[in-house]
Design a protein around this nucleic acid. Structure first.
Lengths: 198, 198, 198, 198
DNA sequence: AATGAATGAGGCTTCATTCAT
DNA sequence: GATGAATGAAGCCTCATTCAT
């Protein structure tokens, strides 16, 4: 009957929630988790310092929410509607292109996810997402290896090489050593395929 | 370069100096720079908190000294007596093997150098060392490209791919996804050569 | 000049601001600036240690704010509505009486201002106030000298004698050698007039 | 029989003792007692930090020794061979001139003694010297008052006025407002005599 | 529900003092 | 006897978190 029902027990405005995550992303990328003050996040988000604690239990919960949000986004981007019936070469290209699209659209999110060392504060839920992605990639590699499309090398090694190379390109762009252009990304893609192909 | 006194006036014990750097290395790898308290470094080093400041002007000077020490060690390891008159393939293998040796001997040092994002506190001297290494690598790539041994792709991209892949292997081992064995390192080496060769 | 917010962003409680200044005054008088710990100021003010930094950027800003507050108060007390059209003798008496009133009302503030050596931490704004007072006094002396009311001696010397004598009386009372009574202050006033009169 | 006997239980080199007191004088004048670090005193004195503790039990003992040394020197300068049989006017002039000589020869010592507030760390021995001086001055004033040479005002007030005025002159010179010349000192002397004479 | 002033624990750093050399 | 490296208590200040409004 009322135009808009009052939210159940907590009534978080999604705008504030996102503003906080956005501010945290910027600051965590610049100065890292431990180097960023919660009141600084609040100020950048345009909310009161106390407000952050209505949306996140504490600073660690905030960084985990941020990690999960973007890791999930990246995973979805790569996995959703993944082409099952095409050749491994094309599948690989698809993965690479989707990651490229993601990094070009959300450079800070990718930098936060992959350029920082989160070991000391990520929780189980965060690790679980990463594990899902790894599982998917492992499956892809195994199938492609069975089809003699990829080198007969431990999947973990092939994945580390390709993922590391991709992150290396992004890192190079953050350090000003190269431009994060489609051209460079495509060149790197060819390199990485050559790296792992049979 | 000189094994002489380190900072203020006289020459304090090199053992303490090294104990502090060793403790800082362990903690910075585990918890990052901002996540590590100076008194925690002192305790792990077995010295008083104030003692750290006899050897390093402040926390930032400590992390830069640590970075420079190990980045220099890594660079020396790769560059000293670098074989000039052999084929690019062999040169590449030499570089990769020397980095592998370094990682296997000093896994924490490499993790500190390459698994963390140091942008917010490294000083000019630290950057200068990294730049030297990059210059050397760029020169190697250009020569090999001139000899038609490597792909005609921007050197920065090829270097980012290979360096990223190497770091990816190390990262994978820290995350428990693969074993940092000579076998895996050798397999990755072949991948990376395939990635960049003409 | 404005009774508005004091520093960072918003307008914190003026009571706390004053409580901190009051506590700082007591402690700085007792133990000096360098001899007083900021947490001790907080405790005496009945606030948390961190609260001080919501009102003052650091310890030096606190001592300068305190100096400026009371130096301004003393200057206003002496200068406001200063009688221009009376004889130098009466003007002198007015100055002396106003300073006496101030000392009797705010003995600790005067002790803080004049019994301590602030050279190592006062900022330009603090010096500026003192300079204004000195300028006013110089002008008074010059006019009275022109009227042959005062000795033809360097104004700085006459001012140093009178100001020093006044401070000497206050110092004597803090050291328990004399009573800071109106009677003693009046006697000293006559002495000082005799000291400088033509 | 030995050329120079070993000193009893402590064998302090008078040169080092004096070097420490000299360094302490300079630093205490500049930054005050609490603002001066003991190692800084040692460095300025050209001795080891630990050496200071062979000559003085602790920092407080050092500042008291310094105070006593110079307060005694000042008192001796004024009191030794004080002319008993001359007129109060001449006696006053003698006192003033002797203080002037002292301040011109040892400006830092006088600044240390009189421009700083020592209340929180002076011990009984230090106070005793000051009391002696005050007693002497009181006696002088009383006799001169009995001879109708000085105003019939509480001796403590007259002494506070003159001593304060003298310190005011010195303070003015430290603050750069006047020159500490014999001429200015003589002018101030005349003022002060006029201040207290009958 | 939102705020931001307030807090105090904890971080970085200094320094009075000690003690092995 | 002299030293100065070493220490740890204590000082200044920041910041994650709370709570009154």
């Amino acid at each position: 009957m009322t135009p808009l029902p009052h939210n159940r027990d907590e009534a978080p405005s999604p705008q504030k929630h996102d503003a906080i995550l956005g501010a945290a992303l910027e600051l965590f990328v610049e100065r890292g988790f431990h180097g960023t003050a919660v009141p600084a996040v609040a100020e950048r988000a345009g909310v009161g310092a106390g407000t952050i604690y209505r949306y996140f239990e504490n600073k660690e919960a905030l960084v985990n929410a941020l990690y999960q949000k973007w890791k999930t986004a990246l995973a979805s981007r790569v996995l959703e509607g993944f082409p099952v019936d095409v050749a491994p070469r094309e599948q690989f290209q698809t993965i690479w292109r989707r990651m490229s699209d993601f990094v070009l659209e959300h450079p800070r999110a990718f930098a936060f996810l992959e350029l920082h060392h989160h070991a000391s504060y990520l929780d189980a839920a965060s690790h679980a997402i990463e594990n899902n992605v790894v599982e998917f990639a492992t499956e892809f590699v195994r199938r492609a290896q069975a089809a003699k499309a990829l080198k007969a090398v431990s999947p973990a090694v092939l994945m580390a090489v390709v993922n590391g190379a991709f992150i290396g390109i992004v890192r190079g762009s953050w350090e000003g050593r190269l431009e994060l252009s489609r051209e460079n990304l495509a060149a790197a893609e060819q390199c990485c395929w050559d790296a792992i192909r049979y």
